[in-house]
Structure formats: structure tokens, C-alpha cells
Design a protein around this nucleic acid. Structure first.
Lengths: 255, 255
DNA sequence: TCTGTCCCTTTGTCCGACAAAGCTAGAGCC
DNA sequence: GGCTCTAGCTTTGTCGGACAAAGGGACAGA
């Protein structure tokens, strides 16, 4: 028979963790709003009654978590965690877990179709203007695989943004970040890849403008299937995401 | 005319960041494998030639990023970032960005449907056994909203796991974590909610076992629509995720 | 063989210090 | 009066050393 639980486990978190938790609580429950200053390290030393080294360790935790940042003058203030940084963390995790391109492809097919559906339904004129601008840039760099891959990545970010669904936006980002480097390789290796990519984007913008859901879904599928065919010319879908891709993700994160 | 780039920007990151980056690089590119020991703080002091305080700040960054952990004896070793922890970070971000339940619902509809499709296609006998076990537990606690909500959350994690797609698994988790507390509220408020929930789970397991994709999708949709109807009895879908839900997420993260 | 003890290592925390960079305010100049 | 420039104060990043608590390991004794 199990004995009645007389005692609760004691919370023996180290001090720096308690500092981080305390500040996090204040931010998450809204008492400290994004943009509000946190105070200097010395302030925190006085408030928490612990050493500055301890405070600094707590600050590192929060900084890495994206809850606080230092502005140009290195002063601390609360902030909204940024999607791209969070997504980079996730991408890194996916790489370490050695997910396959098949998993990436399947998940992206779902997420990008959902994005376009949302975009078709809710895109604003401003969204469309951004997409048009992106298309123009893409057309200008159709011969430059690296630039084109960058435009492609941005295009899909803009489509997700046009869906007005931030959950979707965040959910699709990690997989998209891992796609990005392969797009460059594919456009480099397949001659007609660049023009096909730009043409697909054009159809997608048209579909959004015409609020034509069918067309949007259809061209998203084709676009991704194009990627897949191109990828299978250089590697198997069952290959796991290589460590080398992290270089891209790391560079992106620092930006 | 742009001048030829004679110099590259100098990297002026603080030392603790460089320490963290250096260790991260070794882990990400595979030279340090998950499970490998990192060495003591003193070792790192010797290797990097910086003060222990600096090393410790770097360690905090990596620890928060989920790349290294301390085992029972507090020794450092590399590890695979855990999905639940990453997802908690994302959930926290979604709360701070004040996403609406409508966004959550729409994204989840997409992600859960994709999960069930994958599960129908690829679930193993072991996956099914886990789902069966979960169903038994759910039936036992159908009168206890808190326990039932927990079972429901676990059920959907198991379905995603059965899809064998880790990208999907990770993508759906943040939204799912935010659903969890509302499920309890709904089951509490709506009398027939518990039995309907369990019935839906039963149909979903049947669909997976029979490899009946149509039924799987249908019952996933119904299951989520049930949630939606229940939710709309207590609040508007356009309400943003409340700060109070973070308490759940925080508790989950510590586990 | 098991157990209890002692010692060494490691971590978490503290104290004090200092150089570099930012910010502030007053001096000096037009 | 308004502007610029400099000196001083503040803050951060880093360093060196210190110590208590906890864990691990070796070693002696039952």
C-alpha cells in the first residue's frame, strides 16, 4: 500500500534559476510589458539580494529564452520572443534528431497548403503588395540560385503572414528554414528550376488575389512537388537533414 | 560605385557567447554526440582560457537552449533538445503574442488532421497498444475533468507519434499545449463532454487500426469541432490566449 | 562482503576589482 | 542662446580568488 504523501518535494532550485523564474513570471503574466526596462544588474542585485554573478547567470537564461534583450546601449528590457529565433532553435533540434527530408516534405505540404488557404481567405492589400514586390525581386535574380532561394524562403514567409494566423506562421517556420539551403542546390542543379519556381509564385499570387482557393492549393502542391522532384535528383528523401545545413541556420539566427 | 570589400566585419561577441557558440558548434556538427560528457567547468576554464564566471554564463545559455544538461550528479553532458521543452518555449511565445483561440483552432485542425493521416498510414502495433492503454485510462477517469484533459492531451501526442513524422510532432505541440487547460474547463462545464471525448478517441483508434483514412479525418474534425462548440459556450474564439494558461505550461516544463 | 568515514572534486555562490563603452552634464565656443 | 566637446559617472564584461555544500571514490573496519 502506498503511503500517504506527507511531504511535497522541496524546491531546491539554484538561486540563478529562481531569479530567472521570478523575472519570467512578471513578464509572462503581464506585469512587465514588452519594451519595459528591467533595470540594471545592480538594481537586480539589490532587489533579489544575491550576488551580481548570480544575477548575470539568471539574465543569460532569460536572454537565451528570448524574453529579455539588450538594446543598442546594452540596457535590459523585456521583449516579445521573435519567431525567427525560436524557429532556429527548432530547426537545430530537428537536425540533431536527424529527421528525414521525407518528414520535412510531408509536414511542409500540410503547413504550406494551410498557409495558402488562410492567405486566399484573408490576405490584405498590403500582403499582396509585399508578395508582388517579392515576385519582382525573384524575377530579377532568377539566374542567381543563392538569391533566388532567399527570395523563395521570403515568399513563403509572406504567404504565411498573409494567412493572418500566427500559430501557423510559427509552426511552418522550422521546416521552412531547413528547406532553404536545399532550394539553392536544386535551382543550381536543375536548369528549368528557377523559371518554374518563379512561375509557381506568380500563380500563387494570382490565386490569392482572385481568392481562388482551388488554384492556391493546386499550385502550392505543384510547387512542393517540383522541389521534391528536384531534390530526388540529388539525394534520397529518406536521407536525414545533414549537419552542414546548420551553418545556414546559424548565420540566419545571428541576423 | 560600391567600393571593394576590403575588410570583413569583426566579430565582437562577448566571451561567454563565444564559449557557448564554440560548444554548440561541436554538438551540432556531431563532434560531440548526445550523451557525451562536456567536462567540468574547470576543464573548460583551461581549454578556453577564460574565467570560470564567463564559462558559467556560457553554460547557462546552452543549458537553456537544451543542448546540454546536467545529470544526477550535476555533471555536464550534451543531449538532444527535448520536444516538450521546446514546445513550452513556443507556447510561451504564443501567449505573449496574444494569439487568439481562432488561430489555435485553425492551426490545430490542420495539424491534427495531418497527424491522424500519418497515423492511419504508418501506426505500428506498439503505437496502437499505447493508444489502447490511453483509452482505458481515459474511460476510468471520465468523471474527472483534470485527469481526462491530461489523457486527452496525451492521446493526441500518441497519435502524432504514430504518424512517425517528428516534424509534425514538434509543429503541433505548441498549439496543443495551449489547448490543454481549456479542455479541462470545457469538460467541467459541459455534461456530455467527457463521454463524447472518449467516444471520439475510440473511433480514432478504430480508424487507425482499420487504416481507414476517411474515418480518421472525419472523427478528428468532429473531435475538434466538439472542442470548439464547448469553448464557445464559455468564451469567444477571438479571445486571446490568457496569461493564466502559462501556469500550466510552466508546470509542464519543469517536469 | 558490507558499511561507515575521510578526502578530493565539483558546483553554486559570494566578494572585490578593473577596463571599456555609454551616458550625462557642465565648460567652452560660435 | 544654442551648439560642441570633454570630463566624470554608470554599467557591463571579465577577472581573480574564496568558501560551503554535495557527490564520488578510496580506504579501513566490522
Amino acid at each position: 500500500m502506498p503511503i500517504a504523501p506527507l511531504f511535497r518535494p522541496i524546491d531546491v532550485a539554484p538561486a540563478y534559476q529562481k531569479v530567472a523564474d521570478a523575472i519570467e513570471r512578471e513578464i509572462v503574466n503581464g506585469r512587465i510589458k514588452p519594451g519595459d526596462p528591467i533595470g540594471t544588474e545592480h538594481d537586480l542585485v539589490r532587489q533579489f539580494g544575491v550576488n551580481r554573478s548570480t544575477i548575470r547567470e539568471g539574465i543569460r537564461v532569460l536572454e537565451e529564452g528570448g524574453l529579455i534583450r539588450r538594446d543598442s546601449s546594452r540596457r535590459l528590457h523585456a521583449c516579445l520572443p521573435r519567431y525567427s529565433k525560436l524557429a532556429s532553435r527548432l530547426s537545430r533540434a530537428l537536425v540533431l534528431h536527424e529527421v528525414t527530408f521525407r518528414e520535412l516534405y510531408e509536414a511542409s505540404m500540410t503547413l504550406e497548403v494551410a498557409s495558402i488557404e488562410g492567405a486566399v481567405e484573408r490576405a490584405t492589400d498590403e500582403n499582396l503588395a509585399e508578395l508582388d514586390a517579392n515576385l519582382l525581386r525573384s524575377e530579377a535574380v532568377v539566374g542567381d540560385p543563392a538569391m533566388l532561394a532567399e527570395c523563395d524562403a521570403e515568399f513563403h514567409v509572406l504567404v504565411a503572414k498573409a494567412s493572418q494566423n500566427r500559430v501557423l506562421q510559427l509552426a511552418r517556420e522550422p521546416a521552412a528554414q531547413l528547406f532553404y539551403p536545399t532550394t539553392e542546390m536544386i535551382v543550381t542543379g536543375v536548369a528549368e528550376g528557377g523559371p518554374r519556381l518563379v512561375a509557381a509564385h506568380r500563380h500563387l499570387i494570382d490565386a490569392i488575389r482572385d481568392r481562388d482557393r482551388e488554384a492556391g492549393v493546386l499550385w502550392t502542391r505543384r510547387h512542393l512537388q517540383d522541389w521534391r522532384r528536384g531534390f530526388e535528383k540529388i539525394a534520397s528523401l529518406d536521407r536525414s537533414v545533414e549537419h552542414m545545413y546548420m551553418e545556414h541556420a546559424q548565420a540566419a539566427r545571428r541576423r
